[in-house]
């Protein structure tokens, strides 16, 4: 994937974001160390997500229609589909940003139907969320942005610093720890966002087109990072409509949505569908 040549992420990042394959390997190696450091004890249930006849409407428009699926612990699931298929709505429901009124859903042991307002922060501490537009604070440093996820949990400062430094190093951002995020390239900003979502070692990562704003090489690099986390038992649901991304995790399950309905659930079907698209 990286053959030693210098990779430029975007034209505007030319001066600030160059990395090489050996650097990627170093990142992945450090990531492994980090993950070994924070591997969690097994959960009581093997089921991470259970969705049963879930529907959601925005007024007269039904974004999700009667969908059902389950996700086991440690499973990697791609959500695919065209814009408006319901991918983002589903993800938003899974992290408690939209209420579950029709159908049933549970995530990491939380019943979303009966979820009280005060339970939402507890749910989100078990779920890491990554967005296409990063959602980081540009005027805060890399360290502050990542530390935020641990600070809200009330983690003692010493542990927090150790953990943040470890994942920042694992993401290859150690030299920029105290740079404000507005000075980083798009790829670096997305790595900050991923670091923030993963630093607390969540049981589930929900990623909504996390590589949508990145070029091919950087996409591959970030997918390696996601795969590493997955390897160590973290469940992942990633919304994407990029074939390159799907190809990165061939063992992943693929759930294809269309007009709010699941049209295919499985690896082979989506590959066929992708071929048709091509």
């Amino acid at each position: 994937m990286f053959s030693g040549q210098s990779i430029v992420t975007t034209s505007e990042d030319k001066d600030q974001f160059h990395f090489k394959a050996d650097e990627t390997l170093k990142v992945i190696g450090l990531l492994q160390v980090f993950l070994q450091y924070c591997v969690q004890a097994g959960t009581k249930s093997r089921m991470m997500v259970k969705v049963d006849r879930l529907s959601y409407n925005f007024g007269a428009y039904w974004a999700l229609k009667d969908i059902s699926f389950t996700l086991g612990k440690g499973e990697f699931l791609f959500l695919t589909g065209h814009s408006g298929a319901g991918k983002t709505t589903l993800l938003r429901m899974l992290y408690g940003a939209l209420p579950v009124n029709r159908g049933r859903a549970s995530v990491a042991g939380f019943q979303l139907n009966n979820l009280r307002k005060r339970q939402i922060p507890q749910l989100r501490r078990k779920v890491g969320v990554v967005f296409q537009d990063f959602k980081i604070l540009p005027k805060r440093t890399v360290f502050d942005n990542v530390a935020m996820a641990l600070e809200v949990r009330g983690m003692p400062r010493m542990n927090l610093e150790r953990r943040v430094r470890a994942i920042v190093r694992a993401m290859g951002l150690e030299t920029k720890s105290y740079s404000t995020c507005e000075r980083l390239s798009g790829g670096e900003q997305q790595r900050v966002a991923i670091a923030r979502s993963m630093v607390a070692n969540p049981e589930l990562i929900l990623a909504d087109e996390p590589t949508g704003n990145l070029d091919f090489d950087l996409t591959m690099h970030l997918m390696d990072i996601f795969k590493q986390f997955h390897t160590y038992g973290t469940s992942v649901i990633m919304a994407t409509h990029s074939r390159e991304v799907l190809d990165c995790v061939p063992e992943a399950r693929i759930l294809h949505l269309q007009d709010g309905c699941i049209v295919t659930d499985g690896e082979s079907s989506i590959n066929e569908e992708n071929e048709e698209d091509d």
């Binding site: 992290y95 922060p121 989100r124 501490r125 935020m148 996820a149 809200v152």
Partner: peptide, 16 residues
Amino acid sequence: LDEVEILSLVGASPAY
């Protein structure tokens, strides 16, 4: 608002 949203996303309680 962006900060409030992000804090909420990473599991901050309303009081936090």
